[in-house]
């Protein structure tokens, strides 16, 4: 078993002839929470969709648990996805089903478990996100934060080894923000899964992630642990972490280093 659940080597992706991602190298170890950060439109959601298998890389390799995603057919992809959970930006709950049925959905689709067992499992998952009491509600009756937690319960229903989060903090109030952040960390630790979080919420994610990748304009411009990132002198990172409105003019970093970090050819 390889140490890293996700291994991305020299990955590039283009929509038609418009390049979106170039020369991405990324690894995620088992039991880690990694964050992919960057401003809007930098390609971080595309990267997540590539990991989820919704898109195929134009070049380079993308291995998940030793399986090359590029060479998978639909059946192989679906088999792999049963070991993956994904939390969508606004939860993407099935609006015509109750909370209970939403969480039961993957169990009903992929297992032949008896109804009693499904009920127990669903209540366990709902309890893990603190929403056991909301099992009879419809998604339209939930707040944004609650919907996201239900979606989280649904994505862990099949005990995945990898969970992908697409902007889990977008549009949440401070309390829900903290709750969601804690949940991601706690679920990762207790279930032993690997979590990949795509976000632009620096403060919340730096509290709980193990490793951060900064993406800008389709390339990884910085990487490091939260401590390293907080202490980073890189203008882009500094500006991002501190939310400065203007570009970091005073930081005159020597040009060659800058170019190297941008991954540009020397």
């Amino acid at each position: 078993m390889p140490d890293n659940l996700i291994e991305i080597r020299d990955l590039s992706f283009a929509y038609g002839d418009r390049p979106v991602l170039r020369g991405i190298n990324l690894t995620a170890g088992r039991g880690q929470v990694i964050a992919i950060m960057g401003n809007s439109g930098c390609g971080k959601t595309t990267l997540l969709r590539l990991i989820g298998g919704a898109l195929k890389p134009t070049s380079g390799s993308l291995n998940i648990d030793g399986i090359d995603m590029g060479g998978l057919d639909q059946a192989g992809l679906y088999a792999l996805r049963r070991r993956m959970g994904m939390l969508f930006q606004f939860g993407a709950l099935f609006t015509d089903m109750t909370v209970f049925e939403n969480v039961a959905f993957p169990l009903r689709e992929h297992t032949d478990l008896p109804e009693v067992m499904i009920r127990d499992l669903v209540f366990m998952k709902l309890n893990a996100v603190g929403l056991r009491g909301a099992h009879a509600l419809m998604p339209s009756e939930l707040s944004g934060g609650m919907a996201r937690r239900v979606a989280l319960a649904r994505s862990i229903a099949l005990e995945p080894s990898l969970i992908l989060y697409d902007e889990p903090f977008a549009g949440l109030d401070p309390i829900s923000l903290g709750v969601t952040g804690n949940l991601i960390r706690r679920l990762t630790d207790t279930l032993g899964v690997t979590s990949v979080v795509v976000t632009h919420d620096v403060q919340e994610s730096l509290k709980m992630v193990d490793y951060v990748y900064f993406v800008s304009d389709g390339v990884i411009v910085a990487r490091g642990t939260p401590t390293e990132i907080r202490a980073s002198d890189l203008p882009y990172v500094h500006q991002f972490v501190h939310g400065e409105a203007d570009g970091p003019v005073p930081f005159h970093v020597p040009a060659p280093v800058y170019a190297e970090d941008l991954g540009l050819p020397a």
Binding site: G52, A54, L77, A79, R81, M86, F105, H110, A151, S155
Partner: peptide
């Protein structure tokens, strides 16, 4: 609302 995409991600 990405329900279709969510379904695909659940291998359904």
């Amino acid at each position: 609302t990405e329900q279709i995409a969510a379904m695909e991600m659940m291998a359904v």
